[in-house]
Design a protein around this nucleic acid. Sequence first.
RNA 1: GCGCGCAUAGCUCAGUUGGUUAGAGCGUCACAUUGACAUUGUGAAGGUCCGUGGUUCGAAUCCACGUGCGCGCACCA
Length: 905
Amino acid sequence: MAKEMQKAYEPRLVEDEIYDSWLKSGYFTPENLPNAAERKEVFSVVMPPPNVTGVLHLGHALEHSLMDAMVRYQRLLGKKVLLVPGTDHAAIATQAKVEKKLMAEGMKNPRQELGREALLEKIREFAESSKATILNQVKKMGTSADWSRLAYTFDNDRNAAVNELFTRMYNDGLIYRGFRVVNWSVKGQSTCSDDEIVTIEREATLYTFTYGKDFPISISTTRPETKVGDTAVAVHPADDRYKEFVGKTFDVEFAGSKLSIKVIASDEVDPEFGTGALGVTPAHSAIDFGMYEVQKAKQDVIEIKQVIGIDGKMTVQAGSMVAGMTVEAAREAVVAWLKEHNLLEKEEVVPQNVGTSDRYGDVIEAIPMTQWWLDVNKEIPGRGKTLRDFMREAVTTGLNGNIDQKVTITPDRFTKLYLDRIENLRDWCLSRQIWWGHRIPAWYRNVIASEAKQSTSGDENMELYVGTVAPEGEGWTQDEDTLDTWFSSGSWTFSTLGWPKNTADLETYHPTSWMQMGYEILYLWLMRMILMSTYAVNQIPFKDAYIHGILRDKDGKKFSKSSGNGIDPIEVINEYGCDALRISVLSGITPGNDSRYYTEKVESARNLVNKLWNISRFIFTTSSGARYVESVMPKTLADKWILARFSETTQKVGMLMDRYDFSLAIEVLRDFTWNDFADWYLEIAKIEKGKEDILLYILQRLLVLWHPFAPFVTEEIYKNFDSGMIVVAEWPKVAHELSSEDADAFERIQEIVIMIRNMKSEQKLPASGIPAVSIFSESQNRVDLLLSVKPLFERLGRCDIRVEKASAGEMLSVPEVGVGVVSRQVGDVSIYMALGEVDFDKEKTRLSKEIVECEKFIAMQESKLANEDFVKRAPEKVIGVERQKLSDLQEKYGALKKEQEALVS
RNA sequence: GCGCGCAUAGCUCAGUUGGUUAGAGCGUCACAUUGACAUUGUGAAGGUCCGUGGUUCGAAUCCACGUGCGCGCACCA
């Protein structure tokens, strides 16, 4: 017998307990699944590791709802399912967070004040506590992860993987130390990659000037302070204005600095822009640095002069006037100097895009340095291809032309975005000067690493060793720098499965089956996972990538700390339940598009969950007990209909899940559960008795369909069946089909019931009133059908019913009860309702309105069919449908006319 | 500058390869309700599918142009 069920479902009381029972069952570990050996098909997912920077937000709720719904669905299908959980040390993000916290607590410069080890200890503490919180939250969200395989991007195994990968890439010549202009965050005191830059638009002043009175060319800049570092002026080779100067060098005194400016020709200069001449600052502009390299290759060397230091202040090389100043102060000083010497020709305010650090927020400076780089264009020894080739193949032909090694991106448009990006890909700057992260597995001798890094001349006179462990011998110092955090998260799909060891997990679960992520990390993460995986294991990281949008607040704004619109998913779970949250964030979403979160949606999802609960409660309390029902035979038309509808729903939901259409799957399920099952069939079950088996049969399977979206409530209800846990139940089989005849018959019954309700409502008859209703048809079959379900009309439509076979002529004289009668036509069935008092005016208005509408449609239909082109060209099937439509309309028109006549009499 | 996305009921969104009188949820209005559920039931109202032109027998759907919003990339001297 079913255990006592509360009147309303209270998620708070059961969710934790249920999650514990799942943990105890061991089913999240694929090897522990029932019949594990027979589960041939594997479905594996590696959880995108949340950053250990604090707590999970609603965006994570979306991710976990998507991921867990998919994983649970696959488990119900009987596959060997693995979901690997983990967290990300998130190098810069976490260090930035802790530094900010320490500074808020009064420290001025945490790195200086604490030193490396003590600061790392602080960060570790924070990360560990954050990790614990996060993992707890993941459980709260119901995520069915295999905790025995828990990983962390910064644990020992992952560190070993990172070192191995770095060493292999170095030995293959893909990783190298290179001197060039890098993105430098002064605030963060570290480099960052191109992908970690956020461009913002701001106003800037564009100054046009000459370096000195004797200098023949004017140039423009928004950064006058950097001009003390200029070593050349570039003009377009075909520009006649400046041709005569190309190749000449001018010595000028500029703002306290002696400049030696060579005029060079470069195709990159746009002669139409500004003065058509460009002041070249090789040390502080990536483009100018490019020119410097071109000149070097041409053996027409120009100088490189670093005038901004890593502290964001002007260097000694910048000259006595500005040395030691911040860039902002130096800018003012240089402008003042230009004005004073009458060299400034023009000042104008222009919009300007500047790159800022995504973590520290400061403007990125271009500074020349030696850093570690990953070459994406170099042929990999023994593979005949570059990393860029691999990345391209992975989403087009499949890796090495193997279509089984192809990543399918949903929605497809992101594939194009990805490919565009691949074509513009530059070498990846790997080294970071922050401390929280994987230390670069490189060791130096003779030269101290930190000095080498800042030297502008490169790494000569230095012995270098790269390996997974420190080299033997005296005097080795490990590189102080750490790796870009995406280096470890890029290897996440295989490092979590045991790589570089040749493990069974790697063999069984890689490439993983599915991955979901937000489009904002497409470049940062998806690309790098493909890069790392194709290189390291010669496999794609996952077969399918589902790209989701951002969850925004009700006004469409991004959730962020600064706008204070954050919502704690755990609070939502505590109030409405995890299932409601999951359903609400998955409802109304389409791949790649943003969606909105609002409380009404969660409430509505909570109501739905409660409906499911009460459906179960009704079925259990009206049955002799919950039990497993193997199969059922439909007895009545309603039985046939509901079983077929359930089969159809099962099939649709499966198909939609296979297409990753979570939103529509929920809609289909909701529609069946609430409308078909609860509002129709359960009501019918109160009238036609003996439906216990069918109700139990459908309910048990319906719970399984719901389980991916609402794991907790379904598990709680499922307990009543004593059929084990729903988490490992079997996806229902499609077992019943509906003949079109039965479908039509049942629909007609529904229409009549609705029409009766409608008539009562329109005539303002209280719903409790029981009017006398007569329904007629000329078809004996129809009459037989109607008679067989007479009680349904009486109870569902709340009326006294009489069913007779009658012809059109006979109908008019029929109801002898009461003073007034209204009539309606539903297909071949006429309905007459006797009312004590008929609102004739209302009825007339309604009728004439309907008649006008009907005439309109008939006219439309007729003209359509009169169109020769249509009849000639449209497929016959379509024409048949249109003809049928017209005859239905004509029939309806006739009926309406008759109703009108009847009304008059 | 190049590219992408979005524009459908008051709100949030569906609408699968072009083929009913364009749908759902929420909200609104009316009615009901002691026996699964007020976290409920029944019914109704509500749309120039952003605009213009084109292709087609037929366009919310395909094409072109335009408008508005959002985003990516590049430029950023």
